[in-house]
Design a protein around this nucleic acid. Structure first.
Length: 423
RNA sequence: GGAGAGAUGGCAGAGUGGUCGAAUGCGGCGGUCUUGAAAACCGUUGGCCUGCGAGGGCCCGGGGGUUCGAAUCCCUCUCUCUCCGCCA
């Protein structure tokens, strides 16, 4: 959420920059400005009335102490009008504030100047790429066939127990999952991230804090009996650690990492691109989160992107980094880099990570601030990224590394799997 | 699930319906002293809105009410803790 102050002071800039996200903000910005004006003037009037009330109340107290009961009663009469007036004004104020808040929630984050123009995924620009795309034999199998051939993942069993999108990992399939989680976590720890084990269900306040609510209400599983939500990513609980927190400037940056299972309803997405591991209702992911000083958040974004790059390189997967265009970016992001790996048998790129700088957009909702030496409090910047999401990594590993003998485990992962080949 | 207690500043913990935004202690910060440190002593120490500023207003879990006036009284919601039961 943008701050009212920023919008009112930079109205034309806000409108111009949001055009890149294909969001016409002209109307909403002018409404924000007029509501904010109303809010300020009403607040001032109300404060005056309240100040007078306070003065009278105090005087009445004194009069009673002096035993001047009649004068006190006279003073009481004066408050009747003031009371009505204050009620009236605070009603106006409440409604203005509420409307203002509703509008603010509808305004997306401003895209960074470096965000390319564009409508959708085709307009994202390739930042850089690496690794080599393997040339597979004609009879190469997609990962869902390989998973069956080597008895690694049972999709039908998941349907029986839960439903589509809840695979059951078995044997070396399960061990591979565990190895990847450990691989990602231990890399993150070495890179200076503090490992966190967060709750997998969160309350509504946390959902609002990171922006899943109210925007993406239908995307989370909701345990209505307790009004708790299953997390779609560890970002939600880990970032909400800092909700309503004022950090000391010297504590920045905060670097946290967490593994979690992630739950997504993925309502409305069906078709061939959801085959196998490509899109699931439950999957595993290691997330990295940073909270940083506003002046340093873009350096940090680069650092995080570089870090994720080391992971795909160690896994020896062909990768590329996309700079998302205005039309493909999320509501909350200012700049996002997506990582894709090439899954050779499906012959397509799969998104395995998304690294974003939210600037102060998320922090404003969270009320996550820092206090500097000047004792002023200001909003932090928040960033996060997947490092990494497992299923599509597994898909690419299985497909790209298939040989006559079996599936070859990348060297960097062997210490974690304890085996070199799936056969 | 049953019974009870409670929610106050970074933490602990007072608080009579009226100079309470709130005692006191600890912690934090600054200083004196010291070669340095500790101790001791002195000072300081929340957030939000508004205003150039002086200042004004709001905040004692959330919401509502009573009252000229509420941290204090009433209603309601949420949460936490203790004991019992069940249980990884």
């Amino acid at each position: 959420m943008l701050t009212t102050k920023f919008i009112t002071e930079n109205a034309t800039e806000v409108i111009a920059r949001l055009a890149k996200k294909h969001f016409d903000a002209s109307l909403i910005v002018s409404e924000v400005i007029s509501l904010d004006t109303l809010r300020k003037t009403t607040q001032t009037k109300l404060d005056e009335v309240l100040a007078e009330m306070n003065a009278i109340s105090k005087a009445i107290g004194d009069l009673y102490k002096q035993g001047k009961k009649q004068e006190a009663d006279e003073a009481k009469e004066k408050t009747v009008v003031l009371k009505e007036k204050s009620k009236e004004l605070s009603d106006i104020l409440d409604s203005a504030e509420q409307k203002l808040h509703t509008l603010l929630l509808q305004i997306p984050n401003l895209p960074h100047a470096s965000v390319p123009e564009g409508k959708g995924a085709d307009d994202n620009t390739i930042e850089r790429s690496g690794g080599t795309i393997p040339s597979l034999p004609a009879n190469a199998l997609p990962h869902w066939e390989l998973a069956k051939k080597y008895d690694l993942i049972d999709f039908e069993l998941g349907v029986k127990i839960s439903g589509a999108g809840f695979p059951v990992y078995k044997g070396k399939g399960a061990q591979l999952q565990r190895a990847l989680i450990n691989f990602f976590l231990s890399n993150a720890s070495q890179a200076g991230y503090l490992e966190i084990q967060p709750p997998y269900v969160v309350n509504a306040a946390s959902g609002y804090g990171t922006g899943q609510l109210p925007d993406k209400d239908g995307q989370m599983y909701h345990a209505t009996i307790d009004d708790l939500y299953l997390i779609p990513t560890a970002e939600v609980p880990v970032t909400n650690i800092y909700r309503d927190v004022i950090l000391q400037e010297k504590e920045l940056p905060i670097k946290n990492t967490a593994y979690s299972a992630c739950f997504r309803r993925e309502a409305g997405s069906y078709g061939k691109d959801v085959r196998g591991l490509n899109r699931l209702h439950q999957f595993d992911k290691v997330e990295i989160v940073q909270i940083q000083h506003p002046d340093k958040s873009y350096e940090t974004l680069d650092e995080m992107v570089n870090y994720v790059q080391t992971l795909v390189e160690k896994l020896e997967l062909p990768w590329r980094i996309l700079r998302l265009c205005g039309g493909d970016m999320s509501f909350t992001s200012a700049l996002t880099f997506d990582f894709e790996v090439f899954s050779a048998a499906q012959n397509r790129w799969l998104e395995v990570s998304s690294v974003s700088n939210f600037e102060s957009f998320q922090a404003n909702r969270l009320k996550c601030r820092y206090k500097g030496d000047d004792k002023k409090t200001s909003l932090c910047h928040t960033l996060n990224g997947s490092a990494l999401a497992l299923p599509r990594i597994v898909a690419a590993l299985l497909e790209n590394n298939q040989t006559e003998e079996g599936i070859v485990i990348p060297k960097a992962l062997v210490p974690f799997t304890g085996f070199t080949l799936i056969s």
